[in-house]
Amino acid sequence: MTSIASRIPVRSRVGTGILIVAALSLGRVVTDHMPGQDRHERPFTTAAKVGQTVHLRTGDVVVTKVDGGKAIATPIEADASPGLWVAIDFTWTPRADTSVLGYKVVRTTTGDTYDSLLGRNVSFCGNSIPGLPESCRMAVEMPPDRMPGAVVDIAPVFDSPGYDSLATVDLGITDETVKKWQARTDVVKIPMNTVGTGS
């Protein structure tokens, strides 16, 4: 084994080694300074209040009503919460394509998230048709003390709203609202979604 390495001068070999290490280090430095996944996947957020229409990329959404109480009744089942339910009504009008308002997550000031698609939470929203408003409903259960200041994130997608537009609507819940909801003895009724704003 008369090696090739022995034919190449030591200086050249050392130089090559340094170059390789330098290239690898440079690559490391560049990847370390690239924006992370949460940064380049972040949605384009529009903040709004109850009653304000948000123009998302693929349609318009407006939260029309926020209500709450200890127990809810849907046409499917009735649930009493160890915490409190917050029930949110909104209207979704797609602009160009038939779509479902799938991502509806309540987020607290402490960063806790309550996904309307999971657990006993309620999500009524159909295949919405371009130009035709659909009244959707959702309800999530959460601890009363985390309710004040909570917002709802809404996007017409099913998993992550990354890369696309997202509405963040302040639910306008205060300590007084929570007290009022806790004192309620009646059941919050949640009807199914309806097509159109009225027939």
Binding site: G126, M192, N193, T194
Partner: peptide
């Protein structure tokens, strides 16, 4: 099945739009 209009809006057939 879907319907398209001149501006490219696409309305899909769905069986679940009427409660």
């Amino acid at each position: 099945l879907s319907l398209l209009d001149a501006s490219g809006r696409e309305t899909e057939y769905t069986d679940g739009n009427l409660v």
